[in-house]
Simulated assay, not measured.
Amino acid sequence: MCLSAVIGELPEQEKRAALLRAPKLIIFDCDGVLVHSEEITLSVLITLLNAQVTGSFKLDEETYIERFRGRRIAECLREAQGLLNIELDSQFEAHFRHQALAALTLNLKATDGMVEVLQSLTVPYCVASSAPRNKIEHCLRITGLLPYFEGRIFSCYELGRWKPDPLVFLTACATYNIDTADAWVVEDSVTGVQAAMAAHIKVLGFGPPSRHAQLAAAGALPFSDMREVLSLINH
């Protein structure tokens, strides 16, 4: 279901609240929003984790891509060690990041319609991600999006707090001197939606229809085509 259709089904009061206040700042998540990276990096992570297992139980890729989506890698590793009853060595995360960057370099693409959206926006925009800055920049560089975000990157690693903590979104709004009521966040994960909701920022949930229910349940207005961001602003 498209975003405009979702809004059309809201009660009239909520519909007006959703449409009457055009944004003065749009904050994009990176992985899964600007670029199709979550499936690539988390597939690498799950493969490497399963290679550590000697028993029969292993992580199902589809299930755990969704479970780990949008979360800090260190948190995912702690959970995986408990699930798999393994102890990862101190170099595992560095090895994973090296392998993930190699996979991204070979396979990463910008989200369809993303360049069109960025070229058409007439309001300020930025990216706020739970990833380290070097990964954000790497993903944007190899997909050709980095020129759009020079000087517009906010990383949770530089703040020391990760989504669902709202600090990265609050920092972006403060940097642009924009009230949170005048900002929009575009997220693909429940964790990211929770962070936006905690910051009292309207959040659009980007993803295929199969993920719309969980995004909506977290508080987002779900949509599947990035170009719909432009049509919503124009409303």
Rank of each mutant, 00 (worst) to 15 (best):
L49G: 01
E38R: 00
A51N: 06
Q13G: 07
E66Q: 12
C30H: 04
L59H: 06
Y64A: 04
L42K: 04
N50G: 05
E61Y: 05
L34T: 03
F28P: 08
T41R: 05
L34S: 03
E62W: 09
L34W: 07
L49I: 00
L34M: 07
L59P: 04
D60F: 06
L34A: 07
V44T: 03
F57Q: 09
I40Q: 11
A18V: 09
H36G: 05
A18M: 12
K58M: 02
E61C: 07
P23H: 07
A51V: 06
S43E: 09
F57H: 11
I27N: 06
D29A: 09
N50Q: 03
T63N: 04
T54H: 11
C30N: 15
V53W: 00
K15E: 08
S43L: 08
G55Q: 05
I26E: 07
V44I: 05
F28V: 09
V33W: 12
T54S: 11
T47K: 03
K15G: 06
V53A: 01
T47Y: 02
L45F: 00
D60M: 01
S37Q: 12
K58E: 00
L59I: 01
E38W: 02
L42F: 05
A22K: 14
L20D: 13
K15R: 12
T47C: 06
R16Y: 15
R16C: 15
T54P: 12
T47F: 05
L25W: 04
T47R: 06
E66W: 13
Y64I: 02
R21H: 15
Q13K: 15
A51L: 05
I65T: 09
D60N: 07
G55W: 08
S37T: 07
D60G: 12
E66C: 13
L20T: 14
V35F: 14
L25P: 02
A17C: 11
Q13C: 13
A18W: 07
E61T: 10
Q52L: 10
E66P: 07
E62C: 09
A51Y: 01
L48R: 00
L20I: 13
D29H: 09
Q52M: 09
L45P: 01
E39Y: 12
S43W: 10
K15Y: 11
I26Q: 06
S43F: 06
R16V: 13
L25R: 04
E39Q: 15
R16H: 14
Q13R: 14
E66K: 15
S43I: 08
G55E: 05
E39T: 15
F28K: 14
Q13I: 15
R21I: 15
A22I: 10
G32P: 05
Q52F: 04
V33P: 10
V35Y: 14
G32H: 05
A22L: 10
R16E: 14
L48Q: 00
K24M: 06
A51S: 14
V44S: 05
E66Y: 10
T63K: 12
T41N: 11
V33A: 11
A51F: 03
L49C: 00
H36F: 08
K58G: 00
I65S: 04
